[in-house]
Every structure is written in C-alpha cells, then in structure tokens.
Design a protein around this nucleic acid. Structure first.
Lengths: 211, 211, 211, 211
DNA sequence: AATGAATGAGAATTCATTCAT
DNA sequence: TATGAATGAATTCTCATTCAT
C-alpha cells in the first residue's frame, strides 16, 4: 500500500489535465489528448476512469463539490442576501473556467448516481443559503435553491460569448439577475419553482442520438 | 433550367432536415443522418454545403434571421417595454426547440463572416427595440440590444435542464431577468455594456480544437 | 444503378480475401488485415459488412450454401450410399481449406438468422441424401442428415493436425467413419439422433466471455 | 524456504484457475481474469508463465499427461478392445470439458518442445494400448495410436455443437467411430497411418498470425 | 517474491469528405 | 447534377507485457 504514490499523483494529473482540456476544447477532446496533456499513456487514463463518461462524471463531481463547499462557507455570513449573491459570484467564476459545462448538460455522465447525488447535495446546501435570504426578505418568497443553481449556469452562459474579451462581463448579468430575484411588491413568478434537477432522461425520445 | 429548380428544392429540404436533426440530436448528428432525413444522398449535402460547419452556419443564420424578423415585427408595437419582453419570450421559444444551440457556441461555424453579419444585424434591430424601451423608461438606461441578445441564450440555458419535464420553465427565468432589467432607482450596472459580439477567436488559444 | 460495378467487384474481393484470411489465420485476423488483403480501405469493409460478425456470417453462409449445392447434386446419383460418401468427401475437402471453421463454432455469427436458415437448409438436403442411403440399406437405420453434417466437421478436425504434411489424411478418417455408419447387424447407437443444430446459446452460462 | 512454498502453491492455483477459465471461456480470456480467478495479482501470473502461450502450453501438457495416465491405467485391462474404447470415452470426456481445446489447435503454444514431447509420450502409450487391441483382433491391423489420439479430438469436435443441449452426444459418435475401427474383412484404409504429430509449423505459410 | 500501476500496440468502428460513375 | 462507394484519419477501449515499489 505504498506503490500508490505514483497512482495518486497520476490521478491528480489526469483530473487537472482533463478539467483543462474539457474546459478549453469541450467534451469532444479525445482521451488521447487528455492522456498527453497529463503526461501519461492512454492506458493509464482508462485504468483510472474506465470510460470517458466516468472521467466526465469525476470532473463534474469535482466542480459540484467545490460549489457546495463554497455554499457551505457562505452559510456562515450574517447578511444572507449578500452571502447569496457572493456565492453566486464565486460559483459563476468557477464555471467561467469551464467550457465543457454547457456541453455536459444532458450527457450520460449526468446519469451517474454519484453526480446526481452531488447535484442534490449542492441544491440542498444552496437551498439553505437561499432560505435564509428569503427569510431575511432579501429575495422573493418563491425563489428556491434550485433556481439559484440553475441561474449559476445560465448567467455564466449569458456572458460566455464575451468571455475572451471581457472575462468579467458576467458581473453585469449577475447584477441584473440578482436584481430580478429581490423581494418586492411583485406578483408571484409565472412558472412554479423548478423540481429537483433530474437532468436528461436516458430513454430515447427526449434526447435522441440520431446517428 | 430545370436543374436549378431541383437544386433550390434540395437546398430547402436540406436546411429543414438539418435544422430538425441538429435541434433534436445536437451538433454530433452525422451528415449521413441529415442526408437521409432530407431524402437525398450524402454527396448532395456536400454539394450544397462544402463542410459540416458551412451547414451549421447556414442554420445559425436562419435562426438569427428569424429572430431579427421577429424583432422587426415587435418594433411596431406601441408599448415598447411589453414588446421587448414579448420578443424575448418569442426568441427563447425558438431557442428552446434547438438542442444544438448550446453546442454551437464557440464553434468555427460562428466565425463565418455571414454569421457574424447576421448577428450584427440582429443586434442592431434588437438595439432599436431596446432603445425604445429605454426611452419609455421601461428598462434601465444602460441596457443595450446586445445585452438582450445575450440574455436570450442565457435564459434558455438556465431552463434547459428542465426542458424535458417542464418545457415552459423558461418563463420563470424570463420574468426574473426582465424584472432585473427594469428601470428603477438603482445604481449603474457593474460592468460596461457588452461590445459588439465577436464570438470566439479562431486563432488558437481561446478555442483550440485540441485533438 | 451502374456505379455498382466497382462495388460488386469489391464485395467479391472482400469475401475472397476474408475467406482466405480467416482460413489461414483463424477468426482473430483483424478487419484491417482483411481490408489490406482485399486491396481496399478499412472503411470499405465496413460499408459492405457493418460488423465483423456480419462478415463471418456471410462467409459461413457461402460455405454452407456451397455444401448444400453439392448435396443437391449428389441427390441425383443412383447409388445412394456411394453418393453420400462422395458428398462427405467433397464437403470435407471444402472444410479443409478453412481454418476458421473450428473457431467459428459457437460464435455469435452463428446466431444470425440467415446462418441458422442456411444450416437448416443444409441439414434438410443432407437428410434427403441420407434418407435414400438408409432406404437402400447403405447406412444404419438411425443415422440422420444432422449426423452427417456434424461428421463433416468432425472428420475434418480429426485430420487437421496433419493437414500441412498430409493434406489428404482425412480420407483415412472418412473411411473409418463411413465404415461405422454402414448398416449391419448391430444394436442401435447409444445416444439418440441429434436434434436440429441450434449451436451455442447466446445467454451467458454455457459460453461465457469471462473477460 | 518459505517463499518457495508460496510459489508452488500459487503455481497450482494458477494452473487450476487457468484451466477452468480457458475451458469455460476459450483462449481469449484475459490474463487479468485468470489472475483474478486464481486470487493473485497479474504480475504473479507472468512470473510463473512469461507469456500467455506458455500458460496455454502448461495447461495443454496437463491435459496430455492426464490422458497419458489414463491410457496407462487402461493398459492393465485384459480385454484390450474394451480398454481402448473405454480410454477413448474417458479421453473425450476430458476434452468435452474444455472449450479451449479447439481454439488451441495450430497455436504457437503447440510448438513448445515440452508440449510436443507430451504429445509424443501420449501417442506412445496409446500406441501400446492400440497394439494390444490390434493383436487381439479388436481393431483393424493398420490402426495406430496416433489415429486414436486424433480421433479423440475429432469425435469431441463432432459432438461439440450439441454440447450445450446434449452433453453426452459424443457417445453416439464414439460408437460410430469405434465401429469403423473394428477389424473386419475390409480392404486396407485409403491413406497410410498418420506420422508422428508435428502440429502446425511455426515458420510462416502454414499458420500465419496475419495481423 | 508479489503487487498492481503504467505502457502502448492494436482492435473494431465511425464519419466527414472525396471522387468515379 | 446527383449518387453513393471509397477513403483513411480519428476515436474509444482492451490487453499482454513491463517495471517500480
């Protein structure tokens, strides 16, 4: 149980390389490229992640756990509204580094039980964060944690075309969105709060491969 | 010129088939599938669109032009604020039908001069629409047409994970966003209005293919 | 419908090359090798035979049909016993050219409906041939066509280790076997006549892959 | 020498596991599977058997030696004809348990000097057995031990397609074959007795790997 | 001596694109 | 001009074998 030193190091190298590769090139980077970028042989990638989707899942989990940790940290702040907004800023920053995030939505990797659980955990923690903001009257009464999680991705996507030239453009859209979230003398939102995220359905019809 | 008539017809069939195929299956549908769905041979696809990216570009242009036409129509309404919101709803609806939209961001197809022009045209028209809303005090003073165009995609993406089960969930996020856009006793937005959309840069670093 | 000239030629080249390659090297020859030997590109193999098993099936069918044609021809002879033996000799000769025959037993290619039908057809025709020999008292009363078909392969396998140095050694074993088949004052054979050939069962247990 | 004890034990475990694995799954089982089934690490397999072919050879030798031991035992019986037949039944039973037997014919593993010697030893012993039967007039005068060894494999192969559903079908074909072997008022067999088994030639043409 | 991580050649298969008919 | 056959680079994944611990 010592020989693992190399293995652990390689796993770390692989995750880093894959994160970067997916972020830069999208989900279509080849496993070969990822191996190269990690400085290991192809076979090593597959030893650590038996399929490409496993690798994608591992990376998604990394991201999701990082987001949840952040949410956890912001839970301690007194000003719940400010904390929520700060969390969103932080989260969008994480996403901004990852071009793959968009491609990955609706992918089989999201079917991984582990990923699903990580999403659930994230939504739960963010719900706590959001609940406090709601109670303090900082956001509308019918905003949920899932709304916030979805907005993270959405705001990131909104600013993405500008990412190269104006890397902080998302701040503008976060401001707009957060302004829309604020409690006010407004009617209820037109569509009910989103259900638990269950991502794409594996069974045919809704997301055909159509090859 | 009988041949020309056939050719025109084929082009139309191809565009329709490709639009549907990309929408349903994402950008990874094979040219073969598209040819089949259009009822023509593979060679014919390549006669009309020398590369797959050309085809994608053509379809993006279609979408962009359709959006612009819609914006044009809404230009005639009296209530500029309502018209802007209605336009957004209409635009997001168009996007929602298109699974490829996300995949396509940052693709070389967006480098096509034609697509760039179509984007510019769209932004111009939406800027007119937005300008009127701004003047009527319906939205903040520093909101531009480009903001709106970006939000179209962003709101769509926000609701995308729910698309299968709650196809109209975007209405909720449009409401939130539009609420954030509204003129009010608020400070200026934190980031300057976005520049003209220039999408991803073809030269290396920012959007490598990384194969 | 003219462009097929090349295609037809290629299909023929492929079948020939594949037959030889499988015969010489066994079922593990790569599709690449087969393509090379046929003088076509790898992609062409897959255009004609979507999977390796399809190719194997096609080749098995060739062999089975050739066997059946032979059986058909021998059906016309007057001396039914001699005809049966001549057919066996002819069939074993066909098999002797094919090293793959053994490997292929129990393979998924034999699950192909077409192959199954070809086997059935062969057994039917050979049953006719055998029936006549039975009636003429040339072979035991409880010998069936399926016995004969099985013996074809078995006799071939018996002599196979000698194939390189004594290519006609199978004649010796055919003589022995046929002698054992002859009608005589003997008790019934110990095991009931074999059922229809249904080859290996696809469902796990009996032929696990065990990777 | 504690280590040596472990080593011997591992070798035994490996041989057992490999025998079973090859028998069940054919020669394509991975070394990994074999290691697992033996409860050792992959490296250990290679320490004992430098290549897969060495392992296969070791297993073939086991089988051959087991067959020879059986032949030896039957040598003691008085009724030489019955003993020969009983030996064949016993031998075919051993083969029937082994799905790999067919795959292995013509493999480089059979080139191993050790395997060749084991085959020779087997043939010698069976020749003794056969000689006695010949002398007692129980089988034709020109039947050799090598004939019998070849028939072992051949009869097994004949019944193999039925193995799943009728595991004792080989009894039928043994009866037929043995009937053909019996001494009688018949002419000499058409082909001279087979030479020593020299299996496939390693040098090119006759058994190319053809990759 | 045993372990199991790393290696890298190679397999089947896909697909955009080219080109002969 | 339309067709669809041919091409061959690229992809994911497997596995025998090597080697550091």
């Amino acid at each position: 149980m010592q020989a693992r030193a190399d293995s652990v190091r390689n796993r770390r190298l692989l995750l880093r390389a894959a994160t970067e590769a997916f972020a830069e090139c999208g989900v279509d980077v080849s496993m070969h490229t990822i191996a190269q970028r990690a400085g290991v042989a192809k076979g090593t990638v597959f030893r650590h992640f038996p399929t490409k989707d496993d690798l994608l899942a591992a990376i998604m989990m990394q991201l999701l756990d990082r987001l949840r940790e952040a949410a956890d940290r912001f839970l301690r702040a007194d000003d719940a509204g400010g904390a929520l907004k700060d969390f969103m800023a932080h989260g969008i920053g994480l996403l901004a580094a990852d071009r793959a995030f968009c491609d990955v939505i609706g992918r089989p990797s999201l079917q991984h039980a582990d990923v699903r659980e990580a999403i659930d955990r994230l939504c739960d923690t963010v719900e706590d964060l959001t609940g406090r903001a709601r109670e303090q009257g900082a956001v509308r009464g019918d905003i949920t944690g899932t709304d916030i999680v979805l907005l993270l991705g959405g705001i990131h996507q909104t600013a993405q075309p500008l990412l190269d030239r104006e890397p902080r453009a998302w701040e503008r859209f976060l401001e707009i969105a957060f302004d829309g979230l604020r409690a006010r003398d407004r009617a209820t939102l037109p569509h009910p709060p989103p259900a638990r995220l269950r991502m794409a359905d594996p069974s045919g019809a809704s997301a055909p491969t159509g090859k």
